[in-house]
Nucleic acid binder design. Sequence first.
DNA 1: TCGCATTTGTGCGTATGTATT
DNA 2: AAATACATACGCACAAATGCG
Lengths: 241, 241
Amino acid sequence: MTVLKDVSGGVALWRRIVDAIRLDIIGGKLAEGDRLPTEAALAERFSANRHTVRRALAVLADEGVVGAEQGRGTFVRSARRLSYPIGKRTRFSEGLAGQARMLTTQHLGDRLENANATVAAALGIRAGSKVVRLDALSSADGKPISRATTWLAYRRFPDVAQRVIGGQRMTAVFASYGINDYSRASTRISARHADVEETQLLGLAPGAILLVSEAVDVDSDGVPISYALSRFPAERMELVV
Amino acid sequence: MTVLKDVSGGVALWRRIVDAIRLDIIGGKLAEGDRLPTEAALAERFSANRHTVRRALAVLADEGVVGAEQGRGTFVRSARRLSYPIGKRTRFSEGLAGQARMLTTQHLGDRLENANATVAAALGIRAGSKVVRLDALSSADGKPISRATTWLAYRRFPDVAQRVIGGQRMTAVFASYGINDYSRASTRISARHADVEETQLLGLAPGAILLVSEAVDVDSDGVPISYALSRFPAERMELVV
DNA sequence: TCGCATTTGTGCGTATGTATT
DNA sequence: AAATACATACGCACAAATGCG
């Protein structure tokens, strides 16, 4: 069992306890329905006061991860994380089908931009070229699971925004441009803390961790067609290669 | 440019500023050698006091990411992150070769365990079966980049610990058991905060983020041979599929 | 060499948040 | 519930180093 020492490094003890308990849950040490150790025991384990443990449990209870019952104890409510598959032929909605009852993608906005160095390199175009930027938020059963920004070359996909707003999936949008097949050329995965905007949009607690994936899709000739920067809440999603 | 609001969610403002600036650097907004905005400008941008910004910069300076020069400004010292490739034929040392001058792997310990549910499922054996557990720490140019725990079935690899201590790479160890080829069956990627032990071993600041990879390697017959749980500091590594 | 603006370095007082007892 | 200790964050002021005309 993990024990936290009194190394305060800018992260409050109650938050480190939140993270530690969440880790026990998603790591399988505590299964759905299990009873957590008593507050006194947790206080002992984390060398913290019971007040501090209670504050941590309150946060988890607020998220619906655990629930306290007077006189009985605190129980694990939901331990599930969604698995997002990554591979040559990754399709967002297909990959998650079966893991959630309802999958929705909300269009947040679109605009014309000049490609910065990163986007230009990914799409194989000149820096400063016109690109269409699409912003979207995806949810599974009402819970946000991904905040994605996608860039496409304006030259090849001038009115992609209209077609996306029409409610079509990217697969269908690409098909409408005559691209009947495409595949994943590369995926870079990193992790960082969520910023304020992401925290709000994804419905996370401040300090939450995001899995960040930068993906380049190419058409059947190997020409890059899109560069997508997706941010997944690490507490709700994992990526499977 | 990102702006942080005064939402203290258990994570100190100076630490959120550390993350934000580090993100600007590894995200390419600030290149090696660039001068950062003045402390006053950063304070304005983050709606923070200059002292608070200075504390954040002190952390980054301590890590060698930036360096301050009195009267001149604060400059980006090193912006490099290592890329760890993941694929069918992933080999740890090969993948990182060329990105660092010196790669070392230190054996931290080994012991006989009874497989828990996760390990047993990954290796395709019965829960409770004997497994050998190996713990290792890898560094690139003196900086720790990975903390890995590997489990192997005792039945098939009874004295694997001795062979590993002998300083051999896993590829060579497998070869000594007659396995001349193996490949990656699956990789699960998640992210979380480092615990205290990981923080110390990897030389991180408290609250640092880890990329966690769970990988199963199989022999040429598709039989699982090892289950590895690797933890990479997100600030120094990214994974590339 | 001088003066001056800019930028980092340092000190101190105060208010609030965190954690324990 | 209250008292205590410590970390966090702010505000103001001034010192020290740099670069420029």
